[in-house]
């Protein structure tokens, strides 16, 4: 599948109030072109909730609900079961940020996955609580400066590494898990299509660079997605019932330093910190790709 095969119909309209250069709107607009009109969207608290609608105004052109932060998994489970009981095949999609997935929503998400509910859960990952003003989440990478992990003279940003949420979801052995990047168009569209067509629990995890929180020029959002993949900070794979079935390997691996440069949240990095993050990336690389980087 190619971007030329996508329809012109827009189900997430312009006029939304995301920051200029936000990574999330192109993700949801294009994914909705694949999912189509017969879709119901649930979102907990996140940026997308706020910029996608301020009651009574709304950018979505499909049924849309706002639920509490911690229960995306539970809400989509209930709605999907009610619809299936009525014999309807409507896609039920929950879209949460990394805070609503890694931290606050993980119990309801894990439960829904365990029960293999017939839903799609999307985590758009901008690596911090951007909606409330850039607080660290379980997804924030090592060393990144956020308002709750500021880079000071004693503590240089976040001390812990990013949690591997996609691997946690893979361990649930659900029908479909995929990690995605909008910069990899064909891969992105194929995975969205597959998620639409598979039955049972599907988990999509998409990197969503944030010019405001990561502090880079808004024109570089797509470039950041691309560099995240090329450096190994972000890995693209598909898994079915717990088995990895497809891996995208960058043609040329770039040093993690090239990804860090140009992002204000890593500006304070010392050579030792770069090395620590590179070590983490190389370890992950070996685990996913099964070879030395």
């Amino acid at each position: 599948m190619n971007i030329k095969d996508l329809s012109d119909e827009i189900l997430f309209t312009p006029g939304h109030t995301a920051c200029a250069g936000c990574g999330a709107p192109p993700i949801v607009r294009n994914i909705m072109k694949i999912f189509g009109k017969d879709t119901i969207i649930y979102t907990p608290a996140n940026c997308l909730l706020v910029f996608g609608g301020t009651y009574p105004y709304l950018a979505w052109k499909v049924p849309y609900f706002h639920e509490a932060f911690e229960n995306t998994g539970a809400c989509i489970s209930g709605v999907a079961r009610a619809l299936r009981k009525q014999g309807k095949k409507t896609l039920v999609v929950g879209i949460a940020g990394d805070g609503g997935t890694y931290d606050i929503g993980i119990q309801a998400l894990s439960g829904a996955a365990e029960r293999n509910e017939d839903v799609i859960y999307i985590c758009y990952d901008n690596e911090a609580y951007m909606n409330t003003g850039i607080q660290r989440s379980g997804s924030t990478p090592y060393g990144a400066a956020t308002t709750t992990t500021p880079a000071g003279t004693k503590i240089p940003g976040k001390l812990d590494h990013k949690k591997d949420m996609a691997e946690i979801m893979r361990a649930h052995e659900v029908p479909y898990v995929a990690t995605m990047s909008i910069a990899h168009q064909r891969d992105f569209l194929e995975k969205a299509k597959k998620a639409r067509d598979v039955e049972g629990f599907r988990y999509l995890h998409i990197i969503s660079p944030c010019p405001t929180g990561w502090r880079f020029d808004p024109s570089l959002t797509i470039e950041m997605s691309r560099k995240a993949v090329d450096s190994g900070m972000w890995t693209l794979f598909e898994a079915e019932y717990g088995e990895i079935t497809n891996i995208y390997k960058p043609k040329k691996k770039i040093p993690v330093k090239e990804y860090l440069m140009g992002q204000g949240r890593f500006r304070h990095f010392t050579p030792e910190m770069v090395e620590e993050l590179q070590r983490w990336v190389d370890h992950k690389w070996k685990r996913i790709y099964g070879e030395e980087p």
Binding site: T13, P14, G15, H16, T17, L58, W60, K61
Partner: peptide, 16 residues
């Protein structure tokens, strides 16, 4: 316009 799809009336062009 309010409700589904109503954000089209929110012109954000003057942000730039």
């Amino acid at each position: 316009l309010i409700g589904i799809g109503s954000f089209v009336e929110n012109k954000t062009g003057d942000w730039r």
